[in-house]
Nucleic acid binder design. Sequence first.
DNA 1: ATGAAAGCGCTAACAG
DNA 2: CTGTTAGCGCTTTCAT
Lengths: 342, 342
Amino acid sequence: MSTLAEVARRAGVTTATVSNVLRNKGRVSAGTRERVLAIVSELGYRPNLNARALVEGRPLTIALVVSSIANPFYPEFAEAVELELRKHGYFLLVCNTNNDPVQERAYLDAVGGSLAHGVLAMHTDHVQLDELIALRRAGIPVVLSMWEQPDKHPELPCVAVNFYQAGVIAAEHLIALGHTRIGAIVGSERTGKHVWRYRGFCDAMKAAGIAVSSSATCYCDDTIDAGRRAAHSVLAANPNLTALFTSNDLPAFGALQAAAALGLDVPGDLSVTGLTDIQLAHQFRPALTTVAVSTSEAARLSVEMLLKVIKDGAEAPVDVWAAATPQLVVRDSTGAPRDAAA
Amino acid sequence: MSTLAEVARRAGVTTATVSNVLRNKGRVSAGTRERVLAIVSELGYRPNLNARALVEGRPLTIALVVSSIANPFYPEFAEAVELELRKHGYFLLVCNTNNDPVQERAYLDAVGGSLAHGVLAMHTDHVQLDELIALRRAGIPVVLSMWEQPDKHPELPCVAVNFYQAGVIAAEHLIALGHTRIGAIVGSERTGKHVWRYRGFCDAMKAAGIAVSSSATCYCDDTIDAGRRAAHSVLAANPNLTALFTSNDLPAFGALQAAAALGLDVPGDLSVTGLTDIQLAHQFRPALTTVAVSTSEAARLSVEMLLKVIKDGAEAPVDVWAAATPQLVVRDSTGAPRDAAA
DNA sequence: ATGAAAGCGCTAACAG
DNA sequence: CTGTTAGCGCTTTCAT
């Protein structure tokens, strides 16, 4: 690994000049520029980005804190974030916390301010807001992404997606189709982040004058397997259900599998809605009707906001930016209930 | 962001002492140690990892080069890699090339040697071996992961998984079940990396004295959608097929969907095998019979080898480490053909 | 046990 | 236009 100094020595100039050549800064004569460039390519010299970051006081990476990158939603988001970051010259550092506060803390301690210029934290069930707030107090730029508690201020600058509204939209779709006996599968704990989607569902049901029986609601993990089991149990307890609201796409797939296992025609006997619209949603069969959240927009906004916070420093206000309202995507898993059609 | 110097000043010692306290190096009296630690926590001081990396000549991240982290196989691998890396104090830098040589080059240029201590490159269809070899020549530790061309030396230290053998195993499973009319769906171009799995399949078929008709083989992208379309076309051209070998899990799901769409019972009318065993495989319905590749082992070996290459420097041999042989995982998508059972 | 000084590789004033 | 001088925040001899 050759250094700036070596290039300078061989080119018979100083490091300052080489530095200027490499970054097109300052005035350099065409002659020296050419000579320097020749040496650079001869040596295969590439600048030490860390050294540069150190002197510029600007680390080159942004940390993305997620609970687990293995949940398909996160990679899609991570990829979108990385794309945005690259446009601004940053690299993406992935921090999987595995929902473990210890790991999250270790990451935040290590990364904040030195290794990473800023931190983008996904709103997960177990996000340690306190840690993040402490980090912000310490002067590290932090932005919370995919915030989904519309009525609670996150105390951190954040990009919010109206998941509550997404729940409303899914419910209204089902109601408009003529369904009245609708069950719900919530892919998080009772106090988890998915409850907001569920509240949206409940409020829309109430607005339509339809009761939501608690026996028709089931909380479970955010996986296909859990969704399948939940659907089986909800359907067993409420055989007359014609539709299932699901707080996320993954459990929705499970519900679809349960329906198939029970010999239920979808959407003839049972309609199912998902939420978020991950890529699998359109590839699954039956293709899933879902409420799409724009990951690319959320990623873009999150990066933009983080950059703003980095720039404004301590004066950065604790803003909440709202991403566009989620959009209904009707595919093959929903339709009018049979009795309504009759 | 407080610095070492500030902590030192407040504690009435020099930076060297603080540094020693923080890293439990050198001899420090219990008294000063305590005093320093008190200031550290009072100030919320955290060392600048970049500065440390600079002086130690050891960047703190390892770059993982993948074509797209959105393909479900990669996040699973990335997560396993990150877990290993953390054990050794490294952070994970994700580099999505999107199969774009320009992006790949940009990443390698930027990252190699300074931002990242080493590079772990996944064997993808479009991996730019030349670039990686050039990087190695420049003294950057590079390890190729998931190499799958058993008969071709990669010219780079690498961790190889015997995908050829995986193809053999899948074929032998189908053959043992009594299938003789078996189609193949290859989730890459004809020259892509999946051909090795396909060759394994073909060789096993040949060994069993079964002909592989070219009309029963279809090349497609490595996605569910493409697999579904491929299965439809293969099945249309060869209605008498009783089984389908698929070079990856994603297209296998598509094949399963095609079977369902055609009213084919699985495995009664049609058996389908996948390859790799991503998490979806057991969650899909019917659950997919597949040949499992251990991502965690491959990740562990890859990291281990990269660390070795980093340590040995220029003397590091261009080794090829083989991961354990893939294992057959029988689930619900395969069974004896109906005519054999009759 | 602690301090002083040098330097990792680079950029940023300011001189000339 | 190019060189000189500092210094980013840290670790590391070598003294004391």
